[in-house]
Design a protein around this nucleic acid. Structure first.
Lengths: 194, 194
DNA sequence: GTCTATATCCAGATAGAC
DNA sequence: GTCTATCTGGATATAGAC
């Protein structure tokens, strides 16, 4: 059995993802959750507090693969393979999260410093050492990291535009996104083996 | 001398970029433009119509390099070099545009079909032919195109997160974005010469 | 074309019964 | 914990003088 609070959080997510903080209506969230508007305030006091909870969840989804995969003790190759596959799979289930998170951050940039303040686990030190060691200092870990993330995430972010540009149906574009997992792994690993 | 209408459009842009349609306040736009709220309605009737104009401008900025560079009659290598450099330069001047456009499209996906309806100039046929010819059919033009755009644009979109993650100041991150022009060109051109 | 003053609406939040 | 009814502020939009 799901609690009322979890139910609200979930429905609030779908509304906030689609409309943002300012565009969302408490009434719509209440309707989706099958409860009364007053209940939202009973559980979360204000719209902003409800939004904060939703945003934090979304942000954690957004960066979770970076932290869990990169900080493990697997080999560099294994980490890259894991990151790409897990990230694409996660985004396929929640394609709206990246734009939602990035948009809120662009509206509210100081949020990011607050979030990172308590989180020392998000750390690329280990990844850097592995890249340095692996390539004998020849490969810049920053660009490698940026490229890997960009190649995975951007096609989701820009999906509506690329769908039109490449003349793809929803199903065709979904298939393309999946097929890119192998492509991205090949490209990134290819740089290491030169 | 700049007209009142252009002045409004420009100030409306800065507000809408930061806050989105629902979050923006007509009063704030009026204040920035140094005029009265009533004037906004005199020139653009409703907030939505003002927003539509701003959005259309932004969208054109967002895709202009794709159309102008890729449809020219330059060589494939020259097109890639031009696209990367022009895109990064344009984004450096207006870093807020991509998230703004992508967010609005995620809130309002049918907009993209309306926009593309009249625009037959946005066309990757020529680019595809060049890639096919150049690589003897060995390189997938879709992934090449997606990757090139992703590597250029995504670092701007995700700037606040990467700044924290990589421990960069604003100046350092700006420098990194500039330095990536050569990096991206090298990576993409490198695939062609194998 | 530009302003002040105002109408109108709507959404977040609360009061209070059950 | 859950509801109905209501308060209140604020934002878009308009009326009308200059």
């Amino acid at each position: 059995m799901i609690t009322t609070e979890e139910n609200i959080l979930q429905q609030a997510g779908t509304v906030f993802y689609r409309k943002g903080l300012a565009g969302a209506r408490m009434q719509e969230i209440a309707d989706l959750a099958g409860i009364n508007k007053a209940m939202l305030h009973y559980y979360f006091k204000t719209k902003e507090q409800l939004f904060d909870r939703v945003f934090l969840q979304a942000f954690e989804h957004f960066v979770e693969n970076i932290t869990t995969v990169l900080n493990g003790n697997a080999s560099l190759e294994d980490k890259i393979v894991s990151y790409v596959n897990q990230t694409v799979d996660a985004l396929a289930q929640n394609p709206g999260i990246p734009v939602f998170v990035l948009n809120e951050l662009s509206h509210n940039p100081q949020r990011i410093t607050e979030i990172f303040a308590g989180e020392e686990k998000i750390n690329l030190k280990l990844f850097r050492e592995q890249v340095d060691k692996y390539s004998g200092g020849k490969i810049d870990y920053e660009n490698l990291f940026i490229d890997m993330v960009a190649l995975c995430v951007y096609p989701f972010v820009v999906a509506p535009v690329f769908k039109q540009l490449l003349h793809k149906s929803d199903e065709q574009y979904t298939a393309l996104l999946q097929s890119r997992k192998d492509h991205v792994v090949r490209e990134i690993l290819g740089r290491l083996s030169v």
